[in-house]
Design a protein around this nucleic acid. Structure first.
Length: 259
DNA sequence: ATGCCGTGGAAACCACGA
């Protein structure tokens, strides 16, 4: 089973690129972030026509997440991250697909830091860590994936010294991420490529993609049950070079789907 | 060190992203 994550940066503007990539790579499960569309404007017909079922949680202007599957039923578990009834952002969906619990997330950016947006990010990470602990305690195959807006280490960014005060890389962010990982999650892409520079995002300006001045912020966290099922993974880097591309590239893993 | 680009929504600029 091939599972992918893709921050599309606006599904309306990205639809041709998304469909082209789906046709080219045929992932079985796709988690999308930054739909930037209200619930009623999700292009369900076009997604269905490409061969995918979808559940989504939209929001006007910002955020928005979706889970797509090809020939697999989706059993929705929830569409908000538990822990804060005041939080109105569409940033989390959870569903069971093919026996795996998939937590699909768009973690807050948090800039400028410090400030209220950074406080929100850290609180959101605390809530995610609580939910992740609950999922871990189920002793079931669980996958947390999406745009984490966290650069785990200095090896995951071009010129880390420029990012030490940024919400994606500052010490509190990395500490919070390490606390989550300490529950026993495995960073699938880093496990597959322990010694390679891997980026999943390149800013639109300053020819960052052409210069490979990127970040690795889109991740797959595997619960222990899935570690031995991981057979491959990578970044569909070339998609970032297409016309009208997102600033993120799709990232994917392949799991040996015997349960 | 920086929003230089891109998107959406409202309004012909601004918020937001990372």
């Amino acid at each position: 089973m091939k599972i992918a994550t893709y921050n599309v940066n606006g599904i309306s503007s990205r639809l041709p690129v998304l469909i082209r990539w789906l046709n080219e790579t045929s992932p079985d499960v796709v988690c999308l972030q930054e739909l930037k569309a209200p619930q009623e404007n999700f292009p369900e017909a076009a997604i269905n026509e490409a061969g995918y079922n979808a559940i989504w949680h939209g929001q006007k202007s910002w955020n928005g997440v979706a889970i797509l599957t090809r020939n697999l039923p989706i059993e929705e578990i929830c569409r908000i991250l538990p822990g804060d009834p005041e939080d109105s952002h569409s940033r989390y969906m959870e569903a069971k697909v093919n026996g795996i619990i998939v937590g699909a997330l768009y973690l807050p950016n948090g800039n400028p830091a410090p400030g209220p947006k950074y406080d929100y990010k850290l609180k959101w990470m605390d809530r995610l860590t609580l939910r992740a602990a609950e999922l871990m305690s189920l002793d079931a195959p669980v996958l947390l994936t999406g745009d984490f807006n966290v650069i785990p280490t200095g090896f995951d960014v071009y010129k880390p010294e420029r990012w030490v005060k940024d919400a994606l890389f500052r010490e509190e962010t990395r500490t919070a991420f390490e606390r989550l990982m300490g529950q026993g999650w495995t960073d699938a892409i880093r496990k597959l490529y322990p010694n390679d520079v891997v980026y999943t995002f390149w800013d639109y300006f300053r020819n960052n993609y052409e210069r490979n001045a990127g970040l690795r912020i889109d991740h797959f966290l595997l619960s222990p049950h899935l570690i031995n099922k991981l057979v491959a993974g990578g970044v569909d880097r070339h998609v970032r070079g297409w016309e009208k591309s997102s600033d993120h590239a799709p990232v994917w893993i392949q799991l040996n789907d015997v349960f």
